[in-house]
């Protein structure tokens, strides 16, 4: 039974499990380092050092923090709804990890005589699967805010719902142009279609819209009204502490990785290198990861640079600028593809 089956070859079940474990393990090994990376970089942007006490270059900082978080007392407000309060961070991290399975880190390789695709699964509906998981991840934020039984959390969650719905439309439409040009929804197929030219060139408008919408979708600055600390303490996870808080934190970083991965796959040619360089297969994941790091660095850079938008600015930007731009992009692309 392969519900997501357009994998063009038979893949052994233990290969699938092994791939899942490797992706999961690597992702959770990289996530703590990303937090250090962000804090170091933010520090540099602000003319200070960032964490540099624990381990070499402060690299062991997340280990110390995770120890601290894991040993904290699990408390919740008396007004909160117990099981939903515990469930919400689980939904957030589950959907984020699930979306990571889609990112193609490399082409199909021959390992020990078996054909192994360097991705979790290759789905015939590609980006739609990611959007479906993003749709479910709303509930992680909304239930977390609602179940906390606190006004700050509730307001943060409601802002989050409105913001995520508004920007999801533009984000999806921005990818339609790429899908139309490539003629397939499979993410590996889209990468193969970019062999001649990366889609960032013909789909530059789509790329910009996708990038802007991604900032809102991942609740990153300057669209982080969901957790606007000046007004809402920390938004939907105000009442969270200990490991549930870490779950929310990691979900945010994981979403950042997923969005970067999608951007790399759709616009930057995935594992392809420019100028016709074809390195051996094991280089593919490194190429993809290097490209993802460009986006993640950009995310952090923007956080250090731009101030937070006002709420009405956020909404009018999403509906009056991004959506018409994305629609126009789709229209022009459709005309060009057909003609």
């Amino acid at each position: 039974m392969t519900p997501f089956g357009i994998v063009g070859y038979y893949e052994l079940w233990w290969v699938a499990i092994l791939k899942a474990l490797v992706i999961f393990g690597l992702a959770f090994a990289i996530l703590p380092l990303l937090t250090v990376y962000e804090r170091k970089l933010l520090g540099r942007f602000q003319g200070r050092y960032g964490p540099n006490r624990v381990g070499p270059y402060g690299l062991m900082q997340p280990l110390a923090e995770i120890l601290k978080f894991a040993t904290k007392e699990g408390f919740r407000p008396t007004t909160s709804v117990a099981y939903m309060f515990r469930l919400a961070p689980v939904i957030a991290i589950l959907t984020a990890v699930g979306a990571l399975a889609l990112i193609p880190f490399g082409d199909v390789q021959h390992i020990f005589g078996e054909r192994v695709g360097l991705y979790g699964i290759d789905v015939s509906v590609g980006p739609l699967y990611v959007f479906a998981l993003a749709g479910i991840s709303f509930y992680g934020i909304m239930l977390g805010g609602w179940a906390s039984g606190s006004k700050y959390s509730f307001l943060g969650a409601m802002r989050g719902a409105a913001q995520l719905i508004s920007y999801e439309v533009s984000q999806g439409l921005a990818l339609v142009g790429v899908v139309m040009t490539a003629g397939t929804l499979s993410l590996t197929g889209i990468v193969h279609a970019q062999l001649g030219m990366w889609y960032i060139v013909p789909q530059f408008v789509g790329f910009l819209v996708f990038l802007a919408a991604s900032f809102a979708e991942t609740n990153r600055a300057p669209f982080d009204l969901v957790e606007a600390d000046a007004e809402l303490v920390a938004g939907y996870f105000t009442e969270y502490g200990g490991t549930p808080f870490v779950a929310y934190l990691f979900a945010e970083y994981m979403n950042m990785m997923v969005v970067s991965g999608i951007a790399v796959t759709m616009f930057l040619g995935g594992w392809l290198l420019p100028f016709g360089i074809h390195p051996p297969g094991w280089v593919d994941p490194i190429v993809v990861f290097a490209k993802m790091m460009i986006f993640i660095t950009f995310f952090i850079w923007i956080r250090a640079t731009l101030p937070r938008l006002r709420y009405d600015q956020l909404m009018s930007f999403g509906w009056k600028v991004l959506l018409p731009l994305a629609t126009l992009n789709v229209l022009v692309t459709a005309i060009l593809v057909v003609s």
């Binding site: 997501f4 015939s124 959007f131 479906a132 749709g135 719902a161």
Partner: peptide, 20 residues
């Protein structure tokens, strides 16, 4: 697959979020 994804995106992801 397409119907499943559309179901989750449209109903669970958009319509029901408004309900909630």
């Amino acid at each position: 697959e397409f119907v499943a994804a559309a179901q989750v995106i449209v109903y669970a992801g958009a319509v029901m979020v408004l309900y909630v």
